[in-house]
Design a binder for these strands. Structure first.
Lengths: 179, 179
DNA sequence: TTTACTGTACCGAACGTTTGGTATAATGTC
DNA sequence: GACATTATACCAAACGTTCGGTACAGTAAA
């Protein structure tokens, strides 16, 4: 098990249990590595692992969402493609958001800047697409924020109500709602 | 310090740090009570405290939101009043949501039914108002879900971006967006 | 004297972390 | 090719700390 290969395992534990809930025992079981082996790859401990997982998530976002938003095709097509990727990312509304669970609560603020940066980049990428669709910048910014509000809110409500359809419906309405 | 009086203190700790992050040391410091005193009032330990805090929150919701939605006045007025209360509840977008932080992550599911019930009641109360405004039931239900999606999503995005204005703007647009 | 409540001391268990060391494969040296 | 050395990946066990929780003596009020 190489370091790169075990990061997705750590990712799934952190996004399911959050920082405090993700114990070394769970992380060890998920990766198949002993605690000491985890410390071999991540000398900084849990914080080091979270940083690696956040980098992994940001990289995924960059390659699967941001690049796609900046690619060819009509704005409507690109937004629709983004929704498809987002649906995969969150398991059709059944999987929590890593950024959301690490952000939850104002208590821990160590990873706040990372989360803020990732969300800002995401919103900016959508705003650029909307700008290319002829929407004025301030309105494009606001609509992009609304898009992420809808995604994150629908994720929370869907999981609280045990109803992934709410999330899927929200994603489905998103492209036309943005124009 | 009576039992009732210390519940708001427990509330603020749980909604700031979540279940795992709310240690007995923090709960003791916030209430000014020793551990023995906390266990005198809440023999069931942390779970007991969370249940009390959830009951407190549900009661607050009932008296400050649901009753208001079912009161007199035009639908628009009642929805506007709800938004004002919600703005207070979440400190203008600076305070996390207890339900959201306890719901975060699929790991812990002990309080899931409580959270689901509270959210369902809230959505139902909004849907009733929209019904009285002449909106057909299925559409009213969907719009009400969208309202909670907007509230919860805006709360998360606002706090991640350090920008409470996003939350306030969302709340401000909510009444007209529902009709 | 009874009842309600609280502070102190304490417990076992679980926590994140460190230590000491093994197995293996690659690298340098003769 | 044979051998010593180094680097990497890994683990069992233990470390000190903090966790949630308990036992008990003491205080205050009725």
């Amino acid at each position: 098990m190489t370091k790169e290969a075990c990061i997705p395992c750590l990712f799934s534990v952190f996004r399911q249990y959050g920082y405090d809930g993700a114990t070394l025992a769970k992380l060890s079981a998920a990766t198949g590595l002993g605690k000491a082996s985890l410390y071999h790859h991540f000398p900084g401990g849990k914080d080091d692992m979270v940083n690696a997982v956040l980098g992994y998530a940001e990289n995924w976002l960059q390659e699967n969402v941001l690049q796609l938003l900046a690619s060819e095709g009509s704005p409507q097509e690109r937004l629709q493609n983004m929704c498809d990727r987002v649906n995969d990312l969150y398991g059709g509304g059944t999987q929590p958001c890593l950024l959301a669970i690490l952000q939850a609560g104002t208590g821990r603020s160590v990873f706040h800047d990372d989360i803020k940066g990732a969300l800002t980049a995401w919103i900016g990428a959508i705003a650029t697409v909307l700008g290319e669709a002829g929407i004025e910048p301030s309105m494009a910014q606001q609509l992009s924020e609304d898009a992420l509000i809808a995604i994150q809110g629908a994720l929370m409500v869907s999981q609280a109500l045990d109803n992934p359809r709410i999330f899927q419906r929200t994603l489905q309405m998103l492209p036309q709602q943005l124009s």
